[in-house]
């Protein structure tokens, strides 16, 4: 669906080198801190900014040959941009109808009711949650093959986030060829939705793993100085000095559970993994 190979973009104080792949039928997550390069990657994929080098293949086409017409197969949410705030929901319906051949007006109307979005209010007067819901709704209402969602849940409360993730799950259920690329800095969103996750830091990918593996095989080992000295470190990805000794990240939980029954082993959440990958030492 989407393949990015060594996409490079250089700014004065930031360099991006991004490779990732979104497979058909999969939800791929991109997680990273603010300023890690998520939005820059997304904008390059969407042709909003130029790239210095690398290749992007999207829906089977090289990005340079990807026409505006082909974009009918994409649904996009950008974190910092959307329809003009001076328009109302009622205004954007005829616009979407005329831009997308497959715009599903009845689905759109139904979802407006479901999310209680007022048709006559200017979008700029919407709450953060309402704006976010509208953005996703616009992205899923024309039978797109690939959704590219940059921080669609930013600034939302738990309930609103759940509603949106539910909408995305429904989108995926309708057609098994559909895919989503979604970025967030809230790991729990990605944990429950994504099949695989990329972690980006300072413009480069530091980890790519299936979500299942991440949750089952990654773990944190909490050891004192003595245990640390004796620890077999071949499956330790990162370690970090703590007051009690060391905290270590491994992707082979089973190995340490079997061989070191006495050490404290905690399940690796995505937040823990990303913190260790960034802060810990190799």
């Amino acid at each position: 669906m989407l393949k990015i190979e060594h996409l490079k973009k250089h700014y004065d104080n930031f360099s991006l080198d991004c490779s990732l792949e979104v497979r058909p039928g999969c939800v791929t997550g991109l997680i990273g801190q603010n300023g890690a390069g998520k939005s820059t990657s997304f904008k390059a994929v969407l042709g909003l900014i130029s790239s210095d080098s690398g290749s992007i293949t999207i829906l089977g086409k090289d990005l340079r040959e990807f026409t505006p017409k082909d974009r009918e197969n994409l649904g996009v949410v950008l974190s910092d941009s959307g329809f003009s705030g001076y328009l109302t929901v009622k205004d954007i319906i005829p616009i979407l109808k005329n831009l997308y051949k497959n715009f599903d007006a009845s689905f759109f109307a139904e979802q407006l009711r479901r999310f209680r979005l007022p048709p006559d209010k200017k979008i700029k007067d919407f709450s953060t949650g309402m704006k976010a819901k509208l953005k996703i709704l616009v992205a899923v209402s024309h039978h797109a093959k690939l959704l590219i969602l940059d921080e669609p849940t930013a600034g939302l409360d738990v309930i609103a986030r759940d509603e949106l993730l539910e909408l995305l799950r429904e989108f995926m259920e309708q057609d098994e060829e559909r895919s989503i690329l979604i970025s967030s800095h809230i790991s729990s969103d990605l944990e429950s939705l994504c099949d695989d996750i990329y972690m980006i830091h300072d413009g480069s990918m530091i980890l790519h793993e299936d979500t299942d593996v991440l949750l089952s095989d990654y773990a944190l080992l909490k050891v004192d100085e003595d245990q640390f000295a004796k620890l077999d470190k071949q499956f330790v990805l990162r370690s970090k000095k703590e007051s009690y000794g060391y905290r270590c990240l491994t992707d082979q939980k089973q190995y340490y559970m079997e061989n070191y029954p006495k050490i404290v082993i905690e399940r690796g959440t995505i937040d823990e993994v990303i913190t260790m990958m960034i802060r810990g030492q190799k």
Partner: peptide, 16 residues
């Protein structure tokens, strides 16, 4: 209006 609030970025993700 199109430029306001970086609206152009979204506009050019549409089939435009």
């Amino acid at each position: 209006y199109d430029e306001f609030d970086n609206g152009n970025a979204f506009l050019f993700t549409l089939p435009v």
